[in-house]
Design a protein around this nucleic acid. Structure first.
Lengths: 343, 343
DNA sequence: TTGTATGCGTTATCAC
DNA sequence: GTGATAACGCATACAA
């Protein structure tokens, strides 16, 4: 008669016997089924209030916590939601994560964050993310921008819903438009779009620069020059010098984010150009640092809370109807130009 | 006769039947045991090379991935390592995560990142993290600084080993010392330590400021003034003004990180003070932004790769001996002062 | 060297 | 209303 495969457990120096639903059932004097039902708030009305109370007390007393493993095994999926972060630097990153976590928690799920590696871009077969999804079998994947279409397809195929951070096209078109409009309204007719040179394949940058280009076309302006700016003095200076050589002054630069914007601003300083008279700069994000440097950055400020609302929507649509979806904010209310000293 | 509890599965619109080890076994014409052994690289030498090959091919062909749930259930713990990130902003954050992920991967584990919430500081009973650990039962927890002593105790009690980012005391004492020494070597005798005011309870700040204080005491300098700097123009200006009022000029400010340093530098500008003549500033981290602004920041540059080496050590100590631990670098080699234009 | 049986903790189904 | 049981996928002890 085979013995319990305790060897594996025992070899672990930690992990003293865990409290299981059986323990709770025993202490409460009921069956595991009852425990399961009560603790999951299912069919609670069918049990005597007394019983429910006893079970809850027993669970609390023993410090019982459902095993994700057991639950995941029988459910076919876990209670985790994976938030995938691209390799580009977000300045207000923690704020976004926190907002997402809060929403995800409302649905009874736990949040885990996955960072896409730098060179994980388009690895052949199984990226780290795909492996994570396969093993963790999460309830959902929130895409902050790092997922390729292929990965999204694979994951949605037979794993779980993929929730994009927001309608990428609309949002980025809107942001680019805001930037271009603002620069134009300040009297700049020569525009450029500054990509973060470090990022291989900006998921956002493309849409935004296109949007700037569309605006220029519509307004009869010369098409915007593209430049790739590294977050590093020399490189940034060179990139800007190239732009000036091509377009002259004054020129307005719409930047991919605040970091790029800061790099451009100080590159201008180093080139002896005046900001904003010779070079006007507008970023995106509204991070703290952009507002603390001199000159204070003009930027497109995003409302973090609003921008994650639709994640709650997607979650509500797929899972629990008990959680009120909340208003889905209009684009105009989520983003606005924060006027600084660089335009 | 109870039927398979497929309802739960079926209710899920996704999650088509998963490939299990049984499928692999069938295709390879062997037993589940063999599959398990081969795919875990255990007892491989006991099987016919042919068999091993067949199993591997079958697994690859079917795209078989071990179920984390099944494995965790029987092992008593999962193959995930949780990296806990405190709510303070790291500038070179993604680099650190990537380095850690790479090491963790070498041990066959997957990395998931957990962000400590802002107000999750010392919540009463079950913090999000504790809940995550209880349900996920990770192979380890890497603490980047957000864990309270209580949490560490609870987790180590009966869950898994907690790996601190590095010996916190030594490292932070060293960093503080480097900052103080550098400022002093530049001729500054009036020193101050600038905390990030936003962070409630800096795990690092305390040790560093104490170290600066110790240096001052040892060198016969006045004890350093403590100031709390927000990443925001007005607040930073006020904080610095207070310092100047108390200590006069010139004064050297050791900052908690590059963000704080940048805030101090531009606060000085706004107060009409010269940097570094009136106010000298040194940060910590060596992030990109500090080197792109003008004046270029003097900072304590950390070697990311080296600073995560000991995580590999801890992992090797607890798990696999097959992975070479790698050199554990000396403190002197990990951190050095990067001279900029602010001292 | 391979197969068989068992149990990990949870949930769903059905009998009581 | 409540309890017994099978099954999820995997890893192991033991028999063959």
């Amino acid at each position: 008669m085979p013995r319990r495969p305790d060897a594996g457990r025992a070899s672990s120096p930690f992990g003293g016997r865990r409290v299981t639903s059986v323990d709770v059932a025993r202490l409460a004097g009921v069956s595991r089924t009852t425990v399961s039902d009560v603790l999951n708030d299912q069919r609670v009305e069918r049990y005597h209030p007394n019983t429910v109370e006893r079970v809850r007390n027993a669970a609390a007393e023993l410090g019982y916590v459902r095993s994700a493993a057991g639950r995941a095994l029988v459910m076919g999926r876990s209670d985790f939601v994976v938030v995938v972060v691209p390799h580009v630097t977000y300045m207000r990153f923690q704020d976004i994560i926190e907002a997402l976590t809060s929403h995800i928690e409302d649905f009874g799920f736990s949040t885990v964050v996955h960072f896409k590696g730098a060179k994980e871009k388009e690895s052949p077969g199984r990226s780290r993310l795909l492996n994570l999804v396969d093993t963790l079998r999460p309830a959902g994947v929130v895409d902050l921008g790092g997922l390729s279409a292929r990965e999204v397809a694979i994951i949605e195929e037979n794993s779980c819903p993929v929730i994009p951070q927001e309608e990428p096209v609309d949002v980025n078109v809107w942001i680019g438009l805001l930037q271009a409009e603002h620069l134009h309204s300040r009297g700049f007719t020569e525009l450029a779009y500054a990509f973060l040179s470090d990022a291989r394949d900006e998921p956002y940058g493309r849409a935004r620069s296109t949007s700037v280009a569309d605006y220029c076309a519509a307004e009869g302006l010369t098409a915007p020059t593209h430049l790739h700016v590294p977050i590093e003095s020399e490189g940034a200076r060179e990139a800007l010098a190239g732009l000036i050589e091509e377009r002259g002054c004054p020129v307005g630069v719409a930047c991919h984010n605040d970091e790029v914007a800061i790099a451009v601003v100080f590159a201008a300083h180093r080139l002896g150009l005046r900001v904003p008279d010779d070079v006007a700069v507008i970023g995106v994000e509204g991070g703290d640092l952009g507002q603390v440097v001199a000159p204070r950055l003009t930027t497109v400020l995003g409302d973090v809370a609003a921008s994650v609302q639709h994640v709650r929507h997607s979650l509500a649509q797929t899972y629990g109807g008990s959680v009120p979806p909340g208003e889905i904010p209009r684009l105009e209310d989520v983003f606005r130009v924060l006027s600084g000293e660089t335009t």
